[in-house]
Simulated assay, not measured.
Amino acid sequence: MSTSGPSITDIKLLFAKSGNRCSFPKCKAPMALGDTLTGEVCHIKGARPGSARHDPNQLQTDRHLRENLILMCPTHHTIIDDDEGSYTVERLLQIKLAHEETATPVPDDEVARVAISLQQNVSTVGQTGGLSAHTVNAASITVQASGASNPLNERQIQAVENLWRILRNFSNEFSMVVFVDSILLPQEMGAYFNGADNMPVMDSVLEFRDLQAAIAKMAKAGGDAAAMERPFVSQRLWSIFYVIQAIYGRASFMLTSSYKEKQYVNWRNDSGCDQLLRAVLPAIAVDHLKSLQSNALRTTIDSLEDQFLIEAGMRKASSV
């Protein structure tokens, strides 16, 4: 048996029983958006020495078996690996079992498509011993509504408007996260978190010392209700919306981690943010956005919102 990674059979079974959702309790993040993979295959017992929950007595042939794997979104993968005391092997096995018992089965054709892509495009993520799905030929499936007015067409328009309203709510709820990123350089953020410099402006994001603050803001903005609009918009439009939502949450989580670790955890260097952005933006654009030293988060979100408006037919794509 190969020990280089999970077999296609194990990947199929894992994804089929996931319901295409993160296994973390109450998380609704999808593991795949159309042909774009956004989830991560995590090891319950870490694959390498030093990785979370690594068991030196585990047989090498058992490390990549389905029994030792669980699907998570990038944020919850980081959470379980950063808090081994709370997320023990036993608890993760219970989480996995509970999730698979209640998940909606995934159609066989979707299982085959996503599993093959996942096995062919996995890569090691940081020090966690997890496997991250890369983008696989994202398809744009735009709803072609007829010119005549009809209930479905009107509902599609309403869905786009509702999602845009939620995006504006996200902008309001996470305005301070974007603000501090806009006016402070990464080195200045680093000086604040390691105690070398006191910056009063950072008081505006003190609430993000608690991860629950970001979760509460997501709910207040209407993020939980967004899934109701998914059947009425194109796959790409939904993917763009999901990525914008996730970037707000992920950047906030980086602040929480910065307070915890007493050093700046830069969202630009985060594999989860990188993976999300590459799902909907060209690689050259992602590289440019991450290279910006100031106003990077604002520019990134603006770029994503432009893509949303273009896909919705509310703005023309640039010919440049």
Results as ranks from 00 to 15, higher is better:
L237Y: 14
H76V: 03
D210S: 09
W267D: 06
K17C: 03
Q212I: 01
S140A: 08
I95T: 04
P186E: 11
S175L: 07
T3F: 12
A225Y: 15
T75N: 08
V265C: 13
G249A: 04
M72K: 10
L33Y: 08
C273A: 15
A225T: 07
L14C: 05
S175V: 09
Q119Y: 05
L289T: 00
M218E: 14
T256M: 04
L304R: 04
A279N: 01
V286A: 06
L281Y: 12
L304E: 06
I79V: 14
T88M: 05
A246P: 01
R66C: 03
L69E: 03
Y87F: 15
N150R: 11
M218Q: 15
I183S: 06
I116G: 03
A115M: 10
T135N: 00
S252D: 02
V122K: 06
F241P: 02
H288C: 03
M189Y: 07
M228L: 13
A251K: 09
F179L: 10
D210A: 07
V136Q: 11
W164Q: 08
R63A: 02
T299S: 13
S252F: 04
R165V: 01
P186W: 11
I166T: 10
K45R: 15
V106L: 05
S303Q: 12
V114Q: 02
A29S: 13
K96M: 07
G195Q: 07
F179A: 07
I166W: 13
K316L: 12
A29W: 13
V111M: 01
K45D: 09
P25S: 04
V143F: 13
D81S: 10
R209D: 14
H288S: 12
V265Q: 15
L118I: 00
E229F: 14
S86D: 08
S234R: 05
M202R: 06
G313R: 10
L37I: 01
H76Y: 12
T104Q: 14
I301R: 13
V160C: 06
I240Q: 02
A285Q: 15
C22F: 08
P105L: 07
Q94V: 11
S140T: 06
H43L: 05
P49C: 02
Q293W: 10
A145C: 08
G222W: 11
E90L: 02
P200C: 04
N269V: 00
A317D: 14
T36W: 00
I157A: 13
A103P: 09
F170Q: 02
G313H: 06
T299Q: 15
Q94S: 12
D287W: 09
Q307L: 08
S123P: 03
S175E: 12
P200H: 11
C27R: 12
E110V: 06
S171T: 05
E67K: 13
I80T: 15
Y87K: 07
A52C: 09
E84Y: 03
A312F: 08
R66L: 02
G50K: 05
Q58F: 03
L281S: 05
E110N: 04
S132E: 10
L167H: 10
L255E: 02
G313V: 01
Q275P: 00
T256L: 00
L131K: 10
G272R: 10
Q275K: 11
C273P: 02
R298V: 03
Q144Y: 06
L255C: 04
R278T: 05
N172P: 00
A29I: 02
F174G: 07
M72Q: 15
A216H: 12
S23E: 09
Y259I: 00
C42V: 04
K45Q: 14
L237W: 09
D55P: 04
H99Y: 14
L71H: 00
H77Y: 05
R155G: 01
K217C: 00
